[in-house]
């Protein structure tokens, strides 16, 4: 149709971009270097046992970071995830202690998380609040709700408190059990990460999330309902935070509204951003997020193994977050965006 006017393509056009952008390679390299150093410093690091241990330790953080990837990629942020984690875990614990079965108890907790997520989404879209403010409010309100609900007392899930022993066994298996030596928490993390990767990279929902985060107006012109997409991202985040909170109480098996998951939102956001997801929205991959989660997990594990004091650990983790993101931003390929 435009044949007569067709312009010979420049040589450059022939060159193709590699499918995997350079985006994750930096983080992957950093992780690799860290692992090598730790393996040299400490021969216990590379044992199956320790690696599985790291896997379990990062699982809950990882499950939430998968959700956070969606929220950040859509151009929003959710600060209430630590509170959702505590509230929903405690609610599920209390329902089990009240003698209900496993499935209804899980459902109550997860649904509560989804509802809180939807409220976050509604406030940040139709409510016209910046999500930073809306979810900061929810952080307090949900934590407050958990305190009111439990009267500030710890919730311990055991038979003595009224849980059905069968249900209790199933419930604690979710948190403490293992399949073929792999901790259940890690199994869940892997499944959720796979599903999250598929959802973000391969489905039209993931596409919409990235489009909305990239440019609200362009998304609207494309007929994407910006509000619905953002609300869905918050709902997903809420559900995943709830599930992580439930696994946590199933593992311990107890929790306390004043303590559980305090400040967790910052770890979750940090891991996601270290993994290359943009705070400004429009960019993010689950693979990157997993790498970010692993960097934080491996670092923490390595610092314990090598006997660094907990105070210095805290400092070093902060340092690594800053350095990792800085390297990522400095080496970012030149772009005009």
């Amino acid at each position: 149709m435009t044949g007569s006017l067709a312009q010979p393509a420049t040589k450059a056009v022939k060159k193709r971009f590699s499918r995997f952008g350079g985006r994750e390679t930096g983080v992957a390299l950093a992780l690799l270097v860290m692992c090598i150093v730790l393996a040299i410093l400490n021969d216990r690091f590379l044992t199956t046992n320790n690696l599985l241990n790291i896997g379990r330790q990062v699982s809950l953080l990882g499950i939430m970071a998968v959700g956070m990837t969606f929220v950040l990629a859509s151009g929003e942020v959710d600060l209430s995830v630590g509170s959702i984690y505590a509230f929903c875990g405690l609610v599920t614990g209390m329902v089990i202690v009240a003698g209900y079965g496993l499935f209804p108890s899980l459902m109550v907790g997860i649904l509560a998380g989804i509802v809180i997520g939807i409220i976050n989404g509604l406030l940040s879209t139709y409510g016209r609040l910046p999500s930073l403010i809306a979810t900061l409010g929810m952080l307090s309100m949900v934590r407050g709700a958990a305190l009111i609900l439990t009267d500030g007392r710890p919730v311990t899930v055991n038979a003595r408190n009224g849980a059905n022993p069968d249900v209790l066994g199933q419930f604690t298996f979710l948190g403490q059990g293992a399949i073929a030596g792999v901790p259940m928490q890690l199994v869940f993390f892997v499944l959720i990460a796979l599903a999250g990767w598929f959802l973000l990279a391969r489905t039209s929902f993931g596409f919409r999330v990235l489009a909305v985060g990239g440019s609200t107006k362009a998304a609207r012109v494309s007929g994407i309902s910006v509000e619905k997409v953002k609300i869905a991202a918050f709902a997903l985040m809420g559900g995943l935070a709830a599930f992580a909170g439930i696994l946590s109480i199933a593992f311990l098996p107890s929790g306390q509204a004043g303590r559980t998951g305090l400040g967790l939102e910052l770890d979750v956001i940090a891991a996601t951003i270290v993994g290359g997801t943009s705070l400004a929205g429009g960019e993010g991959t689950i693979i990157g997020t997993i790498l970010g989660v692993l960097i934080i997990g491996v670092l923490r594990n390595g610092l314990v193994l090598t006997g660094v004091s907990p105070f210095a650990q805290e400092f070093l983790i902060g340092l690594v977050i800053v350095v990792a993101v800085a390297i990522d931003r400095w080496t970012i390929r030149e772009r005009r965006v």
């Binding site: 489905t203 039209s204 990235l210 985060g213 362009a218 012109v221 960019e283």
Partner: peptide
């Protein structure tokens, strides 16, 4: 820049962004 293009996304994604339904099956791209 402020409305037409999805600047952070690929050319291919920009081409199909308003026809996602046609370019996906049960939500899978």
């Amino acid at each position: 820049r402020n409305g037409g293009a999805l600047l952070t996304m690929s050319v291919a994604q920009n081409v199909v962004s308003s026809t996602l339904d046609r370019h996906s099956r049960i939500g899978v791209l």
